[in-house]
Write a protein that binds this DNA or RNA. Structure first.
Lengths: 130, 130, 130, 130
DNA sequence: GTGGTCTAGACCACG
DNA sequence: GTGGTCTAGACCACC
């Protein structure tokens, strides 16, 4: 489980790592008890500084997604899958709501927004077909 | 024309001001030649730092939405409505795309995303009915 | 409000800062809305690295004790006093429980423990009289 | 003589082992000459890494609590009971002092601390009644 | 080997 | 001025 990091897209690297780990837990790519790559490995594989990875992992511990197993690394917490599954759509919903609210407050019609969502979603599916 | 500012939602205050001014121009709330509130007035009415409003107005001048009228302040530029109308959906599209891309990359299905958009949009319509 | 830091007592510096801020909020030394010293000031006054202070403040934000006010610094959150007051004895209780449990599991009698607590508490009061 | 280990309570596992062995010697659960479980047995029975148990036993040898008997393992040293009995309350006192000092420095009153000690001690007695 | 802490310093965004 | 992010590297404790 190695993250795809985009530098300079405005989203902090540590947050990208957090979100990707949470998504991976939600969809079963990371199972309970499984170890996440060590900070050092994740750091070298993603070409990111060790401390940045550590920061992400620390945040994930704070949210109860990871637990530290002394001397052996960090593992997925027992209740993480449930948390992450519940949080999966929530993470999307949160950002989506902001976009939609701004659109509505500025007179975008229902037809316009639905058509926009469809066309964008279709375009993305062609971009990376299943 | 006074802006609604949300602090702590992650979006810079100056950008919120810029976008709201542009939307107001696009939908005709602000007409060509009309004066935008003075930096000081906008600042006090929105409880925002004066420099922040100045920064927003500076950006808007740079984009050609506002023009400086000597001695009287800033007014809507002649070609601003056309610019802003063209940019209206584009501003929404840009952010929407980002949200949808993350959703798709993390296994959110078409059904889930469409249902999410509908429920959120409906909820917003109830929140502030026409 | 400047913290007293002990290096090399085993407790991480950032945690010492966190606990002292929380105690200060609990007993009213820091009021709602009041700004905590800037990371840079706290750092120089306590002879601690800026990042260490930042780490402490970040943790306090995570716990909802501090809120970030864009561009102006960090302030005590509205509900922090209640939280901290509730947490004040809890912070002591948590550590106390561990000590007492170990004592009990190893045959220390009630008389012994109560006498120990009294003698230690009295000694501390003489050390730093009110 | 098998130890009760709590992971993730902040206290190093090897130290938990050391302290429990010393307490057991002090209260006569472990007698002079008696063998302590082998490193491997203690490790498997407590689900702890072998090296960790070895580290604990090494420390205990350093303190003169355990002595190595060629070919048969480690046994309780002749003068261990006296040492451990003398150190028994001291081990508790040391940690207790730290907790009380923080409490006092942060305005916890005598009444509060005594009442806290009583309630915690009572709760623990109900938890594991004699 | 693992994570955790701390330092030092650069750069950026925001107000 | 403020905090936030990131990098780099040292040192430690633990397993």
């Amino acid at each position: 489980m190695i993250c795809q990091i985009e530098t300079n897209n405005g989203i902090p690297i540590y947050e990208q790592i957090c979100r990707q780990v949470k998504f991976a837990v939600a969809n079963g790519s990371l199972l309970v008890g499984e170890h996440v790559p060590s900070v050092r490995e994740m750091a070298t594989r993603t070409a990111v500084n060790v401390n940045t990875v550590a920061r992400a992992y620390r945040d994930l511990q704070g949210e109860g997604v990871l637990v530290s197993i002394r001397g052996t690394g960090l593992a997925i917490a027992a209740d993480a899958p449930e948390k992450c599954r519940r949080g999966r759509l929530e993470m999307v919903r949160e950002r989506l709501q902001y976009v939609l609210r701004e659109a509505m407050q500025n007179g975008v019609s229902s037809d316009e927004i639905y058509s926009l969502v469809h066309s964008e979603w279709d375009a993305l599916q062609k971009e990376s077909p299943p």
